[in-house]
């Protein structure tokens, strides 16, 4: 990856941007910015839509692909599988998957598998199939057929079913999404992508990685951060409930009992 850092956040309508000073002046460079860098979660929060703008600067004007990867804070996932035991559907032992971001979105100007090969996508974690999700507690390393350091999962051949289920359930909740048409070139070298955050999006720091691909190789990248945070009353209640849970619990119960008593007093007929 070429890493000349461009100090300019590209605005939407720069016709011929100044090329950044760098030893390889002719190297292609990508630049991007988010319309919002913080998302405030208030009582009327119903998700948010963030627009990402960017530009590709390439003197050689080679065919370029743009991939945008947005990752939320990591959240371990606990998953169970329903199994039929003597006619009843029961939960299996839960399996913990690590490395799963709480939010993930991969957007590109054409399907990822057309842009780069499997190995490159896997290395970059680009696309829901290439997320570095695994269940370390289920794995052990052993020697098989004389081959050392083979990673074996105790989930056996079902391992991929489990892993796919993590992605499928997260996609259903609107937390994971892969969109092969999510990046649109609006003008020569100028592109735009939308990031839709559902109501259930976790709070924390999100990292957006914007990658420029040429000939199936990532040639330039930028990183942007996005902060999703609770504000106002929502934040105060959340912090209270988590930092001083006992006083919160007592206050909540006292309030409930007082409300019940007040209602009965208000409805008293005499």
């Amino acid at each position: 990856m070429i890493g000349p850092i461009l100090a300019l956040a590209a605005t939407a309508t720069v016709p011929s941007p100044p090329l950044p000073p760098s030893p390889a002046a002719s190297a292609p460079v990508i630049s991007a910015a988010l319309t919002d860098t913080t998302v405030q979660v208030k009582s009327d929060f119903r998700g948010a839509r963030i627009v990402l703008y960017g530009a590709v600067f390439d003197a050689a004007a080679k065919p370029s692909d743009v991939v945008v990867l947005v990752r939320g804070p990591e959240q371990p996932v606990r998953l169970t599988r329903k199994q039929k035991v003597v006619g009843l559907w029961l939960n299996s032992r839960p399996v913990v998957f690590r490395g799963a971001p709480g939010f993930y979105r991969a957007a590109s100007n054409r399907p990822l598998e057309d842009i780069a090969n499997f190995g490159t996508l896997r290395r970059l974690g680009a696309g829901v199939d290439h997320l570095p999700i695994n269940a370390p507690a289920e794995q052990h390393i052993e020697t098989r057929y004389g081959v050392r350091d083979v990673v074996v999962s105790s989930l056996g051949p079902d391992y991929y079913d489990w892993r796919r289920a993590v992605v499928r359930l997260k996609e259903k909740a609107g937390l994971y999404h892969e969109d092969g048409r999510g990046v649109r070139f609006v003008d020569r070298g100028l592109f735009r992508a939308e990031i839709a955050l559902p109501t259930g999006a976790p709070t924390g720091v999100y990292r957006a990685e914007i990658l420029l691909f040429q000939d199936g190789k990532p040639v330039s990248s930028r990183a942007r951060t996005l902060t999703v945070e609770k504000v106002g009353v929502e934040r105060a209640l959340y912090v209270w409930a988590h930092d001083r849970p006992w006083s919160y619990g007592l206050a909540a119960m006292a309030f409930a009992l007082a409300a019940g008593w007040a209602a009965s007093a208000a409805f008293r007929r005499d």
Binding site: P76, V77, R78, L79, T80, R81, K82, L169
Partner: peptide, 10 residues
């Protein structure tokens, strides 16, 4: 859906 996400880490 045979798989179920469990909330929290216990």
């Amino acid at each position: 859906e045979p798989f179920v996400l469990l909330s929290g880490m216990g």
